[in-house]
Amino acid sequence: MNIIICLKQILDPEIPVRDFRIGPDKREAVRGNANLVTNIFCENALETALQLRERTGGKITALAFGAESAEDTLRKALAMKADEAVLVLNDGHPHPDPFTVAQVLAAAVRKIGACDLVMTGRESGDWGSGQTGGLIAEELGLPCISFVDHIEARGEGTDASLFVKRQTDNGWELLNAQPPLVVTITNNEFNVPRIPKTRDIMISARQPITKWTLEEIGVNAAEVRAGQSYYEVVDLAIPAKDVACQFVSGDTLEQKVENLAQRVIEVTRSL
């Protein structure tokens, strides 16, 4: 089973709200002192892939589209024991729209070649569009299953068949699929990403990473660099949050609780 796993490097989603800032163009967040990390669902996906490989063998190629810094994400994937790593360098728009990303990743997947399974995270912790997997599938003309948390493979070669479990709103579904296909991975208790062994981190620092430019993968480089043919962020704002707790008012306990109940109902109805 040859697996290509798409990984995204994002701004640390756990930075405190007070440290979160938006740039003057009001279109993207300022990095500041925060770190860049691998998107957690991508790591869940990698973990799922690693476990699948442990059972069925095969090869895992980690693929990223991003700036030079995304090398860290790929090195971590190698330390977690992905077999190979490919970085498509993004020298254009820092946050291209999901179609652009999918186009690039699909082109890279084609260039890598023989592949039974393309995996992505269900969404990213920064922009969280939740579209990349589906759009890659369309670009490649493959079927797609979303919110997958477990994959089993049976059979070999042309007889290969995948059993894919995915989460739904109120439970789960088991799907049977013929590779090649695209899956997007969500988290469950079994695909918590492993912590790489220090020994493997040391080894991964010396492993080669294949780097391709946009021109090398045969996409419309100018359009990709512009990165917003699909959609465009026209504004980014920090929602005004009333940080101060509003203590419910009322002269009597009963009134206060009445007001409390009102607020509770208000919030639950808005969900």
Partner: peptide
């Protein structure tokens, strides 16, 4: 809502049709 709820983005869709899934209960 983006960045884990830390920000709200306004996004303009460039192609037609605009396919939008909604946080329907909102």
């Amino acid at each position: 809502s983006v960045y884990g709820g830390k920000a709200v983005a306004t996004i303009e869709l460039k192609r037609s049709p605009a396919v939008i899934w909604l946080r329907a209960r909102a």
